[in-house]
Write a protein that binds this DNA or RNA. Structure first.
Lengths: 194, 194
DNA sequence: AATAATAATTGACCGAGGTCATTTTTGTGA
DNA sequence: TCACAAAAATGACCTCGGTCAATTATTATT
């Protein structure tokens, strides 16, 4: 059994996260370097690793926080009225992830991860997004706008699959300028329509 | 316009690939280190990078070759008779990729990539797997074992999405021992059944 | 065969993530 | 308040992928 963290540790952690967020807003996630973070935060390198395990762990906390904010926003809009409407609700998330391949990688790596102290935020975004879609789907099934006969949770997981797919393709085809938003709609239509 | 590569260059490339394959068979893809490869091959470090761009480029060639072999094997089996049968054809690929997260990452990164000299093999595996599934699907649509009304190519791309999804989940949930093979079947059933 | 031009290779060097034995700080009980 | 154990932080050091100006080998030209 481990003790609760000391006040000093929480402060250090907060400082590191604040500094990292600052650097990200200046240079993007891909531009974040560990040495810069610790230099600005005024701590030693080892400290950062003792808090977040590795660089990805730090990024996971930042990105997880961002995505949670977006989900709050989407949640406020209520249940969509059509599949097309449902698709549009996911555009905020799609735009965010499409900005930087690193975001996609981190989300993919930590979704449903081990639930270790530092990165459980990303796991939460995954389950939360699934729950959100699950709620929509069961209501839309009742309204007849989504096909019945399949578990809402299962259908929600399918949406996750298509989300990841259109993002992966958009990163591969960057030169062809394929828009992930336009690509998503047909998949969800075929997956969800009655 | 660039000239054809000299004989010496082709030999060096072959030597590097052979040595890398050897190391992979001993230590797995994750255990492959650039320094080991060049040491055993008896060339300088820079040579490897001039051939493959980066470490991932080398891995892409190795993994791409492996997957192409598997596709040859699957192709020989002919069109599946049911969705269940179709699902089973993909198990070889699923088993291979599930062995090592690095395989998954490389395939995801280079699928449909820029088509640059060194990694076009992976792009080929992607389009080849899609074409294979596309052929199956159009025949199965005619036979009534797969739902009609949707482009076979589109349905094939959906299969890719579910393949990637069950693999991603299996890596995240490694402690829960979730089997990607068992997870795939329901998705393909829901996606393809008439 | 000698020379020029291009291809191929070299290896010292760099950057950035990550480790861990040691040191400093903090909380606790006598 | 002093001593002591656990927590937190430190920074020298390491690994390993990746770079590039310099060097060597090959091919084309006269």
């Amino acid at each position: 059994m481990s003790r609760a963290p000391q006040k000093r540790r929480l402060e250090t952690r907060a400082k590191l996260l604040a500094v990292a967020q600052e650097i990200v807003s200046e240079q993007g996630y891909s531009g974040l370097r560990v040495e810069d973070v610790v230099a600005r935060a005024g701590v030693a390198k080892g400290t950062l690793f003792s808090h977040f395990g590795d660089k990805d762990g730090l990024l996971a906390v930042l990105i997880g926080g961002e995505v949670m904010g977006q989900l709050d926003q989407i949640h406020g809009l209520g249940t969509p009225e059509s599949i097309d409407d449902l698709t549009k609700r996911l555009f905020v998330h799609l735009d965010f992830v499409a900005k930087d391949r690193m975001i996609f990688d981190i989300l993919l790596r930590y979704s449903g991860a081990t639930g270790s102290e530092t990165n459980e935020v990303v796991t939460e975004t995954f389950t939360r997004r699934c729950d959100l879609a699950k709620g929509w789907i069961s209501q839309m099934q009742a309204a007849g706008t989504v096909r019945a006969g399949l578990d809402p949770e299962f259908l929600a997981e399918g949406i996750e699959a298509f989300l990841a797919h259109v993002l992966a393709i958009s990163f591969c085809m960057e030169h062809e300028l394929r828009d992930p938003k336009a690509a998503l709609q047909p998949f969800l239509q075929a997956w969800l329509s009655p």
